[in-house]
Nucleic acid binder design. Structure first.
Length: 791
DNA sequence: GAACTTGCTGAATTG
DNA sequence: CAGCAAGTTC
């Protein structure tokens, strides 16, 4: 087998360096997956490593599946007596825990249930309620996020409580919810996503026999997307490689975009310290994109300070320029994108396109526009298959079939379809369960036995439910997964109830359930792991796993697009406050993460890249004005081709840039000449002043002409246009105050130039303003100190 | 007990 | 503009 001939020299080195720690810094599009898969094939067929001694870990099932497939292709025709384990972090942990969790002696049994985020939120909601915080400002979702983040950074409920500062009521409340939540998880024999990592690491740390077993088993370990690993994942890998040290990690610090989820970039930056005799190989040749696309990506990410620095190059042609479009609003932007996709596909019918956005909420307008244009699209994220209510309901029945004590699953379906078990009955049931100190399932057993205190109707309804579950439990003992799935749909009355609805909606739900049955049938055929594994797999499916490579158009968040590539890419909604997101405006490190995200987005494109932004956008059902993203400003403007009709930010940015350049040149020659601003009389672009201002700053920064804060009191009659046509000021006049710096109005700042006021908190001159300055992003300013002028 | 109405509050990114 | 909780009606 000649695997190596298709690789460049660096890649070949990465494949053949099989012994000892190895760090592969793989830039975007540098053939990373090829290197990993060839490496695995090489280990097996050239170095004669037994396949089951190899472990490759990824973050998504999709990546794992693709790797498995490609390794399979490389090794086609060879007879292997085992297979390498190619798995996600989470399923690896589940595997370990299903085997050994009882050794932790924390009360968990091997038949534990996995709670996904939705389940966790439900438990937390109940905890908040039971602790009497319900009227509090404790959002269940928010609390879950807080707890998850804490768990991910290696802290438990106790250490969280210890860190609560005196008088911080909210955190104190969260600490108590946290504690109760943890107790309930144990009582329900349930682990949340974070626990999967935590307990697996605990197992390796605490039990030498377990650790030794896996060290013996996994002699060659590969980790994909290493820049995204968090401290728990680092610990896991560390324990697994303790003995043999044959660890190969692949990653790219410029694509680290999961810091918010606990990813620790120092894992990759300090790899050489963690593994002292590590070898480092850089893959810098890009096979994916045109030179222009790489140049733009490089120009943006260059603005980050926290990076090792790496320059991608390609032998691909320089390609077309980047297309830029300024839309009136979100709808126009979506229509533009749909039209352009159509245009491209008319020329090249097989051209795959991706529409990338910062937040899932942006997907809707694009869905509509594509539907109107008759383009088939595929959407990743949002409501994925396993998140649909009907699928979750049936999965809950399946969970009960494995473990009827799972109260979350029980509560979900006890009255779905409706069986006449309402709030009253359930509350009473819950109360008794707490009294007796047993699970809801056991309580049902007691009540149906001697049902005092319950209406006969309730008792008989409970009996019906009990019989259904008992039957499912029995079925799960002897039948294949698909049979239990069918029973969970048919014998529970679920499908009958949907059928009787007679609506289109119910029809599509039934179809989804049929899909679930199909999935189970496939599962039985291919994996044959039984119901337990089927449920585990269903619980660990992620949004990104739903991506269908062959779809003509794919809509997804930029995060979801990491690792993928498309000939035609649209990056949409490039607006200040949206991308970069407003929540990252205050923190430099977070802004850098947004910038890396922008880098990821750009480098998804193979041949054509479009960037667009809208002037106004609906947020929370209200129209708000928007300014272009500072990332647009970081792109080399001469590489952008303006497709906007009429005036646009780019046209003005360009003219002021070139004017400024001429101006600067003159100044350097000692000719103090005309101010460039007189050239801007057109004033068609709303923020033209701020653009000019911005470029004054820009040249200044690079040693151009001295400031001149432009105390321009020109008072052009455009003021009347300000309140009439600016949607923001019209909609938010409620916060009016004497100062005049109300949301929607424009202000001038000595350093940042003209900006748009987005928010105003407090009153008088102590008021805090959030202002968006084109090219600088959002700033929070105290009115008193900011020295703002009306503009 | 279930189906419907009103009113409030809140989405950043994900396994 | 959502989705969800509490309130209202049958």
């Amino acid at each position: 087998m000649d695997f190596l001939s298709s690789l460049n020299e660096r890649q070949r080195e990465a494949v053949t360096t099989t012994e000892g720690p190895l760090l592969i810094l793989a830039g975007a599009g540098s053939g990373k997956t090829r290197v990993i898969t060839v490496r695995i094939a090489h280990l097996i067929s050239e170095r004669e490593v037994a396949p089951h001694n190899i472990l490759a870990v990824t973050f998504t099932n999709k990546a794992a599946g693709e790797m498995r497939e490609r390794v399979g292709q490389l090794l086609a025709g060879q007879r292997l007596e085992s297979a390498p384990l190619i798995s996600t972090f989470h399923s690896l942990c589940v595997r370990m825990l299903r085997r050994d969790i009882e050794k932790l002696a924390e009360g968990y049994t091997r038949s534990f249930t996995i709670y996904d985020q939705d389940d966790s939120v439900r438990v937390i909601k109940a905890c908040i309620k039971d602790l009497g915080y319900d009227d509090q400002k404790l959002g269940a979702r928010q609390t879950q996020g807080q707890i998850s983040h804490t768990k991910n950074s290696g802290l438990d409920a106790e250490s969280y409580a210890a860190r609560v500062e005196y008088g911080d009521e909210k955190r104190a409340a969260i600490a108590r919810v946290f504690k109760l939540y943890e107790e309930r998880l144990v009582n329900n024999n349930a682990l949340d996503f974070d626990d999967l990592m935590i307990k697996a690491v605990k197992l390796l740390r605490g039990r030498e026999d377990v650790c030794a077993h896996y060290n013996e088993r996994f002699r060659y370990i590969l980790v994909d997307e290493y820049q995204d690993t968090n401290s728990l994942q680092f610990a896991l890998i560390h324990f697994l490689t303790e003995k043999q040290q044959n660890i190969c990690v692949v990653g790219d610090e410029d694509q680290s975009v999961y810091k918010w989820r606990g990813a620790d970039i120092t894992n990759i930056l300090n790899f050489e310290q963690h593994y002292p005799n590590a070898k480092v190989i850089r893959l810098e040749q890009n096979y994916r994109s045109t030179q222009t696309i790489l140049d733009v990506a490089g120009a943006v990410v260059k603005n980050n300070t926290e990076r090792k620095g790496k320059t991608l190059w390609t032998s691909n042609p320089s390609g077309e320029s980047i297309r830029y479009y300024q839309a009136l609003d979100g709808d126009t932007e979506a229509r533009f994108v749909a039209a352009k996709i159509e245009e491209h596909r008319r020329r090249e019918p097989d051209l795959r396109a991706a529409v990338l956005y910062r937040t899932n909420a942006q997907s809707r307008v694009f869905e509509e526009a594509l539907r109107r244009a008759g383009l088939a699209y595929n959407i990743v994220g949002g409501f994925s298959f396993y998140e649909r209510a009907e699928v979750r309901d049936v999965v809950s029945y399946l969970k009960l079939a494995m473990n009827p004590h799972d109260s979350i699953a029980l509560l979900r379906v006890i009255n779905t379809p409706t069986r006449g078990l309402g709030k009253q009955t359930l509350d009473e049931l819950d109360r008794r369960a707490k009294d007796y100190g047993v699970s809801l399932w056991e309580t049902i057993g007691i009540v149906t036995d001697k049902g005092e205190g319950f209406s006969p109707r309730a008792v008989s309804a409970l009996k019906t439910f009990q019989t259904i579950i008992t039957n499912l439990v029995a079925l799960a003992q002897k039948e294949a997964a698909s049979e239990v799935v069918k029973a969970a749909i048919l014998d529970t009355g679920y499908s009958d109830s949907l059928k009787s609805e007679n609506s289109e909606e119910a029809e599509s739900r039934l179809e989804n359930l049929q899909e679930l049955v199909n999935a189970a049938v496939d599962y039985d055929k291919e994996e044959g792991g039984g119901l337990r594994d089927f449920i585990d797999a269903a619980a660990l499916v992620s949004d990104t796993d739903q991506y269908n490579r062959d779809a003509p158009v794919t809509l997804m968040t930029i995060h979801a697009a990491k690792g993928l590539e498309f000939p035609l890419v649209f990056i949409v909604g490039m607006e200040d406050g949206l991308f970069p997101h407003s929540r990252s405006a205050t923190d430099m490190a977070e802004l850098e993460e947004e910038r890396r995200l922008c880098y990821v987005a750009i480098t998804r494109a193979e041949r054509f890249l479009y960037v667009s932004h809208a002037m106004k956008r609906r947020v929370y059902g209200e129209e708000v004005a928007a300014e272009p993203s500072q990332f647009l400003n970081e792109m080399p403007l001469e590489m952008l081709e303006d497709l906007s009709r009429g005036p646009s930010w780019l046209k003005f940015a360009r003219s002021s840039a070139s004017l400024e350049a001429r101006h600067t040149a003159k100044a350097l020659r000692g000719e103090t000449g005309a101010k460039p601003e007189k050239k801007f009389d057109g004033k068609t672009y709303d923020s033209v002043d701020s653009i000019a201002e911005f470029f004054r700053q820009r040249t200044q920064k690079f040693g151009g002409t001295p400031p001149k804060p432009a105390p321009r009191v020109v008072k052009h009659p455009a003021a009347q246009q300000g309140s009439a046509s600016s949607p923001a000021s019209a909609s938010s006049s409620s916060t009016s105050s004497d100062s005049g710096f109300v949301p929607g109005s424009h202000v001038r700042h000595a350093k940042y130039g003209r900006g748009l006021v987005l928010r105003r908190e407090g009153n008088g001159d102590a008021a805090k303003l959030t202002v968006s300055f084109p090219g600088f992003g959002q700033k929070k300013l105290i009115e008193k100190y900011a020295g703002l002028e009306k503009a």
